[in-house]
Amino acid sequence: MKQRKLVVISAGLSQPSSTRLLADQLSASAVRAAGLLGVTLDVQVVELRDLAHEITDNMLTGFAPASLKQAQEAVTAADALITVSPVFSASYSGLFKSFFDVLDKDALIDKPVLLAATAGTARHSLVLEHALRPLFSYLRAAIIPTSVFAASDDWGANSVEGPLRGRIERAAAELAREVERREPAVVTDPFALTANFEDMLKNL
């Protein structure tokens, strides 16, 4: 079995949170789907609520406090991400965006990312396409074709084996295939020296 790292980012605020519920279902499905392909996924969940102060501090001071730094390092070293935001004012939440605002802009390059969002009504479902997808396109992530949206309706009594379950399985299977066919993530140090001085002088 290959070992790979999956980091799940949940921006839900309440306890319990439907955002976290969707994140957990997606990661459980991804672990199962990857297992069928011979890949063991180690899952780490990052709850952004727990890092809210640190994210603001990072924005103001320019460096990440230790707990946020650990989360950033886990994301950078991950072989795949699942990111789930609640919809606030017709977009991802400010906290969700802020986490990525203070992440190194190269951290997600070519990393498989499954996008998901939750809201009170299905009328917000295109937030995945007009808000989340452009953000992760900018960050040059390898976005999984199927993204998953869950409204309050989807958690209703009759929906356990309904359309949401199908979308979760499909998206998780796509993510698992991306992870399986890739080499493990390589972490580069943004503060490492990449050129010697003679070359810097020559290539002004």
Binding site: T61, G62, F63, F191, L193, T194, A195, N196, F197, M200
Partner: peptide, 25 residues
């Protein structure tokens, strides 16, 4: 890191601001 490299190249001094970032950096 380019500025650390520049200081090293010339054998000049390197002054780390130090006050805004953690010690590990």
């Amino acid at each position: 890191p380019e500025i650390a490299e520049q200081a090293a190249y010339y054998g000049d001094g390197f002054f780390a601001n130090h006050i805004f970032w953690p010690a590990s950096h």
